[in-house]
């Protein structure tokens, strides 16, 4: 095996829209985050903004199949698409099985699409750390749309909301009663709700969802619609795309898109900062110090736990350097 990951060579090819280069740059940003700065510095001045769609929902509701159906139509209208599909990493073995791609074979060979599977690698919220970085790479590559499929998430992991401009939440018949839906807290995250597998029913869920959405207070001026689809035959997918476009237009007209974009970066900045601070703290506070605290907690000082941590932290001092 001879593997070539020379950044300069890859960037040159990337700029000529070479997918092999794109694939390898993704590998770099995913596996060696320290290369990211260097890579991204090559794209300064690139103006392209992609529109980001997030697809989320419980395991097996048909997210991947729907991404396939959506992409088919977007490709037909001449758009280019970058897809990021995230699947869970096993917490026990660290391995992962990435099965989303199997559902996208209809479109995978189209020249205007690029599909990448990712393992969540311990990252929470249904996505993975590299999702943001890959979305930037896709923007630099000039994709019109970016579609992010999250891990099949359970109840409350909807971090996709911070990255996507339009979040589509998928449900299926048999998903549960309305109480279940409310508990899941999904009423707040979806910009569009899809009841997929309409061939198996689901009218009842639509009714419940509509009722709940009517009751929910709307701040953004957008009342989330509910669409029924069969992602295998493609029924209802056109109307889903219409709704996505409506939402996009709504965001653009109301200036909310700017907010969303800002939020997307702010979210990453916060994450980067806290990870940096974490690293600083690790270097300042030794494992011994932490061990001492846990040992004394065990020796009858459990009620002093806060005290001791505050005390330790009060010895740490951050200072902002004055910039010129």
């Amino acid at each position: 095996m001879k593997r070539n990951y020379d950044i300069d060579v890859l960037i040159e090819k990337f700029k000529k829209k070479d997918k092999i280069a794109l694939a390898r740059l993704i590998t770099l940003v995913e596996n060696n985050p320290e290369t990211t700065t260097n890579i991204f510095n090559n794209f300064n001045g690139s103006e392209k903004d992609s529109y980001i769609i997030g697809i989320t929902g419980s395991p097996g509701v048909g997210k991947s199949t729907l991404v396939n159906a959506l992409s088919k139509i977007l490709l037909e209208s001449g758009k280019s698409i970058g897809i990021i599909s995230v699947d869970p990493t096993s917490p026990f073995t660290g391995g992962a099985f990435l099965g989303d791609r199997v559902r996208m074979t209809d479109v995978s060979l189209h020249p205007n699409i690029f599909i990448r599977s990712l393992a969540s690698r311990g990252y929470k919220g249904g996505i993975s750390r590299a999702v943001f970085d890959i979305s930037l790479l896709y923007e630099a590559f000039g994709m019109d749309f970016i579609i992010i499929e999250t891990v099949g998430v359970g109840q409350s992991e909807f971090d996709i909301y911070n990255l996507a401009y339009t979040t589509v939440v998928i449900m299926v018949p048999g998903y549960g009663d309305s109480i279940q839906i409310q508990k899941a807290g999904i009423i707040e995250v979806g910009d569009i709700y899809v009841v997929n597998k309409k061939d198996l029913g689901g009218e009842d869920i639509v009714v419940q969802m509509e009722m709940m959405l009517d009751d929910a207070t709307i701040q953004s001026g957008w009342r989330a619609p509910v669409v029924m689809t069969n992602s295998i035959t493609g029924e209802g997918v056109n109307s889903l795309i219409e709704k996505i476009m409506d939402h996009k237009e709504h965001l653009e007209l109301s200036e909310l898109l700017k907010e969303k974009k800002k939020h997307r970066f702010a979210y990453k900045i916060e994450e980067l900062l806290s990870s940096k601070i974490g690293k600083v703290l690790e270097s300042l506070i030794s494992k011994d110090d932490l061990n001492k605290i846990s040992n004394s907690v065990l020796q009858g000082k459990k009620f002093k736990i806060y005290d001791m941590v505050h005390h330790l932290f009060s010895n740490v001092k951050f200072e902002m350097k004055k910039s010129d």
């Binding site: 199949t65 099985f97 099965g99 209809d106 295998i232 035959t233």
Partner: peptide, 11 residues
């Protein structure tokens, strides 16, 4: 008419 079905293969 019916669309292509991909099985929910378990690994």
């Amino acid at each position: 008419v019916w669309g292509i079905w991909e099985p929910p293969i378990a690994i």
